[in-house]
Amino acid sequence: MRTILIFISLLLISGCAYRAEQAPAGSWQAQKQQLTKLEHWQLAAKLGIITPDERGSLSLFWRNNSDDYRLNLTNVVGKRVFDLSRLSGRIELIDSEGQRHTADNARDLVYRLTGWDLPVEQLADWIKGLPGNADTVSFDQDGRPALVQSHGWQLRYLGYTQIDQLWLPSRLELSHAGTTLKLAVSRWELNP
């Protein structure tokens, strides 16, 4: 009887070890390479911004093509807040008055013109569920990122949706130094 119990225990342990090595189908670990290679996508979302001085709700449209992107923010009545783009390394922001501004760093440019601390350079990865060079990452029960600490930012992934066999974030919350961003994705398109 004791030999049978030891044998069953060994089978259970080896079964657990095997499952731990294999990422669950559809999990971030199993899809990390695909997500890293995903360079052409677009999404539409609602973005809530909370700072010590203001609260706002905006519509966000993001189109990504490799290293280039276009990020468009509009208010609730559809008026442009700003268009931010990167094309061949050149970063340009068109403000609500149609004025063009350029800089070497998108985050600094947005902060200078709006007072909002938006981690634009990291968002392209974070929005796909890739923690990038995070300090710490904890995962949900399906192996997807749930909580990420990265260079003073805290990301909480609050929901995922499956698009073309990939699990992509549908809701996330980012916070850093008094700024909170809440993103609710309404539409993903891959390789548009």
Rank of each mutant, 00 (worst) to 15 (best):
N75Y: 08
N75T: 08
N75P: 07
N75Q: 10
N75L: 05
V76M: 14
V76Y: 12
V76H: 11
V76L: 15
V76N: 10
V77K: 11
V77D: 11
V77C: 07
V77G: 06
V77L: 15
V77T: 15
V77E: 10
G78F: 11
G78E: 06
G78S: 10
G78N: 08
G78I: 08
K79R: 13
K79L: 14
R80H: 10
R80T: 14
R80K: 12
R80Q: 15
R80V: 08
V81Q: 11
V81L: 08
V81Y: 06
F82C: 08
F82A: 07
F82D: 04
F82Y: 14
D83K: 14
D83T: 15
D83S: 15
L84P: 07
L84R: 03
S85I: 01
S85R: 13
S85A: 10
S85F: 01
S85W: 03
R86E: 13
R86A: 09
R86S: 09
R86H: 06
L87R: 12
L87F: 07
S88F: 08
S88Q: 15
G89P: 00
R90T: 12
R90Q: 13
R90M: 08
R90A: 12
I91S: 02
I91Q: 02
I91V: 15
I91N: 01
I91M: 02
E92N: 11
E92G: 05
E92L: 06
L93F: 05
L93M: 14
L93A: 06
I94S: 04
I94P: 00
I94H: 00
I94N: 01
D95F: 00
D95G: 02
S96T: 09
E97D: 14
G98C: 01
Q99A: 11
Q99I: 12
Q99E: 11
Q99N: 13
R100W: 03
R100V: 00
R100A: 05
R100K: 15
H101P: 06
H101F: 06
T102P: 00
T102I: 08
T102K: 06
T102R: 08
A103C: 06
D104K: 13
D104Y: 09
D104W: 03
D104G: 13
D104A: 14
N105D: 15
N105G: 04
N105W: 05
N105E: 09
A106S: 10
R107C: 06
R107N: 14
D108S: 11
D108Q: 10
L109A: 02
L109M: 08
L109E: 01
L109N: 01
V110G: 00
V110M: 02
V110A: 01
V110C: 02
V110P: 04
Y111R: 11
Y111C: 05
R112E: 11
L113A: 01
L113M: 07
L113H: 01
T114V: 06
T114E: 07
T114L: 04
T114K: 12
G115F: 08
G115D: 03
W116R: 03
W116P: 08
